[in-house]
Write a protein that binds this DNA or RNA. Sequence first.
RNA 1: GGGCUCGUGGUCUAGCUGGUUAUGACGUGGCCUUUACAAGGCCGAGGUCGGUGGUUCGAAUCCGCCCGAGCCCA
Length: 929
Amino acid sequence: MTREGDRSERSDEASGETASREAEAHTPELAGEYDAEAIESHWQRRWVETDTYAYEGDPEQDPNTVYSIDTPPPTVSGSLHMGHLYGQTLQDFAARFQRMVDGDVLFPFGYDDNGIASERLTEDELDIRHQDYERQEFQDLCRDVCQTYEAEFTEKMQGLGTSIDWNRTYKTIEPRVQRISQLSFLDLYEKGREYRKKAPAIWCPECETAISQVEVEDDERGSHFNDIAFGIASEGTNREEFVISTTRPELIPACVAVFVHPEDDDNQDLIGETARVPIFGHEVPIIEDERVDMEKGSGVVMCCTFGDQNDIEWYQAHDLPLRVAIDETATMTDLAGEYEGLSTEEARKAIVEDLDEEGALRDRWEITHAVGVHERCETPVEYRVSKQWYVEILDHKEEYLDAGREMDWYPEKMFTRYKHWIEGLEWDWLISRQRDSGIPFPVWYCEECDHPIMADKADLPVDPLSDEPPVEACPECGHAEFEAEEDVFDTWATSSLTPLINAGWDWDGEGASEASDLGAESGERQRPANGGDGGFTMEHPELYPFDLRPQGHDIISFWLFHTVIKCYEHTGEVPFDATLINGHVLDENREKMSKSRGNVVAPDEVIAEYPVDAIRFWAASAAVGDDFPYQEQDLRAGEKLLRKLWNASKLVDSLAPADPAEPDELAPIDRWLLAELDDAIADLTAHFEAHEYAKARDRLRTFFWNTFCDDYLEIAKEREGDPSTAYALRTAHRTFLELWAPFLPHVTEELWQAVYAESETQDAGDDALESASIHVRDWPAPEGYEADLDAGETTMDVISALRRYKSENQLPLNSELDAVTVYGAIDGFEDVVRTVMHVEDLTVSDDDPDVTTELSDISLDYSTLGPRYGEKVGEIDDAIDDEAFELDGDTLVVAGEALEPDLFEVSHERTYSGAGEMIETESAIVVVE
RNA sequence: GGGCUCGUGGUCUAGCUGGUUAUGACGUGGCCUUUACAAGGCCGAGGUCGGUGGUUCGAAUCCGCCCGAGCCCA
């Protein structure tokens, strides 16, 4: 704690001194064991302090040289979970790779602290209800609670070592964002894409607000089906009553009609008659409609305003009256007569009892069924008629589909989710919420004629509850009294603007016509002015459209969708070139982590036990878009890799000077390594560009561990002092650190600073991490080394054969071998085999070894044989199995066919008759005497 | 109920524009102290590729159905 205090005091002093004292706390040094805990937190702190990842782009810059990422800001509703950790890490791979490839990367961060989620957090945290507070008072409480959570969240995010630019964070509730959000509302309104309408909407009685379709989720709840007898008030049928089944008897005071399916033979007689509702006695028409589900209950259904979405459709289609029996807090209204004032639950019980008493309850049994509940509070939703603002989207479905097609999807298959979502859309987007903590609508209404008065763009952000409207009198009717809109925006109305927030979208009322002229000249980089005076501008036009938008596959259908369409409507451009979809982290049994199952793994616990770099290595193991399990064994694999990298670095450090001169000519083995490295670089670059992190990870690990450590380092040990090997060792080692850097930022930084940074930045001063960090270096490019890769491969085969020989004969690996003969092409690598395997006398022979061969098998090349011989292949196969074939020179005569040599291969059983032991490998034969 | 995705040794995974011998890691058994690393190296065991039917000379791979899991939607 004291140290913390010291540091924050000192940071006000001259930065040079601060930095040098900081450096004393931890001097990168390549010695002993790798201490991840100390080293990781050190670099995390240094990266933030020195703005290593700050975006310094220039608005005039060519957008092609900037890589901009639009990150969805996490909702402030709790603490960091494994999904955050995984998603952020994946984004960071892209950010770090691109920073090395191209330099300027914008990797921002935001908090979505506006809306119902943070209100509920506040209510839970402080154990209060928003209804008990004044709006401003409650908003202040929300800000306080969110601030605490955000501070904690930030600290934990920084502990993940992601390369976020912490200078560029935002909150969706801050004034700058409020201005953008209100601008968006005004712009869409002016474009004719928003309307205010009185209509049935989904309503949460607990939160007391309208909510949108996407905020409702199904929940299995216990309930009862009640068979209730309705009387018949008209004369057209012999029946005196009929029965309906309902789970919501408390809605019968709101009953406005009864429906029968037109093809329901049993109930045809009811159509056109009048029903009498029990207890309440009011009469309602019986109407036919195809939407009746004949399979359910009696086939006769009551329609109430409103029990479900079907009721709404009927209400609209048949122009039914509105009977509101339940108010905004789920309390019965005066329409419910003696039940007025009861909650829906209480009323349900009372009405059922009274129905029973009256003889109208014919049956009642328990069921479980899916109930629509509000995702934030799990309260069953109601449907209420109210005046709400909508964004019109249904008429632009085709354009939104095209927008989706314009983006590159990683993985590609995820586009179908977006597509199906849009194709299935049935409602326009309801954006008004009757809540306290949110961004207010910048609107007033004329008290006389209800005409909406929009705020002036220049005045934004405004709060109509405390600010005055921009007009003296209503432009429609001249009335001078106005009513403020009390509603706030839906969270998504703001969080769908993150590309515009990140790019600094704004409206300029003065210099705007100029800006719009510029736009016409220089094409798409400038936003066109929106009619008349003024126009939209961007502080950082070079960022927009964004190169990448990452998110989980669960939010494609609303967050990504809303963001694409809003930005598209505002700018006419698709906001993202590409979108990267991450899967979900499951528990070790591949099941979803959830609090109720108690299988949640907290990132804190994982970080306490494993290095962040090891966790990142695990995060890289999943194919992008696939769900994958959290398994501790994978973290141990990462830990082992860190140790290997550390130890190999120590060995390299002991074998060669840090910065050896390039020799005039490289020895074949060294040229071979660098040529293999070139190949690896090319593969890795392609994998990173395609977001194939799992493939990149495995390719790099295999090459580093097997080829470099197991094969090359063992050779290099025997070549200590050779300038060619020293150069190759160091070149490869530097490159490995750079290639690992996006995956393992901490250990590579430590190694880089310990070994190479000093020699490169001696003159730059101590606090020049910003330019000396491995993470701002250039991504390696293939150098064009050429080598006989086949001979190298054969040589490695020979070496591992000899290693196996020693192992199997229980010999130490450094034991001497008297004489070895190699039958195979290892041109130029003879010395390598001799020294690394300690061979006294090595002979390489072009001849065949002294063997007696016996024909053992014919292996057919089916890929050419199949297409040529078709169904005859089976016959040929059988004949060979029966040994019914003959070799006629190069030709194989079998089953009446003469097969050309390219169709088969003859393999021989070799029996070595010379001295010593023969070992066969794929590419060579080795004889040890 | 609909859509999308997934199912490969004990565990996780590669392969899946069809070519017969299915990749690697972890774990597991055995052997080896070798000028980084024994938390290392070498060798081995372990798989009817969810089930089933089809297309084909040939299917982990393509198609149909079924089973199981996940996500989204109703």
